[in-house]
């Protein structure tokens, strides 16, 4: 209950922060929408060269793209500050977070939201609905995908936190969190395009296959509903594992003082 109250307070403060850079905010929203549209256009250009990629049609590949984008947009909207932990370490403000009687990761994640990413979220949602209609999927599959995306965004959060473990070790000098953006690029395509070894890594080590490729195959193509429980469970499990690693390294963190 206390954390819920805190979350609401954080949200209020974050919403107020929108007013600071109002003009730039609109530019960002428009830019992100255009970026998404152009990404789709680029995908279309690829299908001008070939009719199918590893058995995937344009619409099917677009569905993978939409699922990954929706998941990443949720991550960006709510968890983006997980990418900035090295900045806190750099500036020496991390210690202030540690002395407060609230979970440090909760504070870090909620200290800032990426208001610009609402454009991404909107495009991903619209795209998902359009592609599902084009693929003649029943409406409840679209809802299932939205439900799953809430959990798959935890995979990106987990990867960002893993990247920050390097920051903890190096006192903010090195930072791998930004590679979350590259991992998103990886998740935008079906596992089928990757080499066998990489497929195994993307399923069992860095679970990016669970973001879009596996949900698409198991739910949209095979209609195996029990994956609706397995996919969220895998996402939560991965996040909890990463959280334990984070706690382990946090306990070993040594402040630079000052």
């Amino acid at each position: 209950m206390r954390y819920l109250k805190l979350l609401l307070t954080y949200m209020k403060v974050n919403l107020k922060s929108l007013a600071i850079y109002d003009l730039d905010f609109y530019f960002a929203i428009a830019g992100m929408i255009i970026q998404n549209v152009l990404n789709i256009l680029a995908l279309r250009f690829i299908f001008n060269i070939v009719p199918q990629i590893k058995g995937y049609s344009f619409e099917q590949l677009l569905l993978t793209y939409a699922l990954a984008s929706l998941s990443f947009a949720i991550f960006k909207c709510f968890f983006i500050n997980a990418l900035n932990i090295s900045d806190y370490l750099h500036q020496g403000t991390f210690d202030a977070i540690l002395v407060k009687p609230v979970n440090p990761l909760f504070q870090l994640v909620n200290a800032r939201v990426d208001e610009d990413s609402w454009g991404d979220l909107l495009v991903a949602l619209i795209l998902l609905i359009i592609v599902d209609i084009q693929l003649q999927q029943p409406w409840y599959i679209t809802l299932m995908f939205m439900f799953i995306a809430l959990f798959t965004s935890l995979i990106f959060l987990g990867l960002a936190i893993l990247g920050n473990v390097v920051s903890l070790l190096s006192n903010g000098i090195a930072d791998l969190a930004e590679t979350t953006f590259d991992f998103f690029e990886m998740s935008k395509y079906p596992l089928a395009i990757y080499a066998q070894a990489l497929k195994i890594v993307l399923t069992f080590v860095l679970p990016l296959g669970w973001v879009a490729s596996i949900p698409q195959e198991k739910i949209a193509q095979k209609h195996e509903w029990f994956w609706l429980a397995i996919i969220p469970a895998v996402c939560v499990l991965f996040f909890l594992l990463v959280y334990q690693v984070w706690r382990l390294f946090l306990a070993k963190y040594q402040s630079t003082g000052s």
Partner: peptide, 17 residues
Amino acid sequence: TYSIWGISTFKEAVLLI
């Protein structure tokens, strides 16, 4: 605007295509 993030996103979009 005191912030360049939005306009840069716009630029990235233009460069993309």
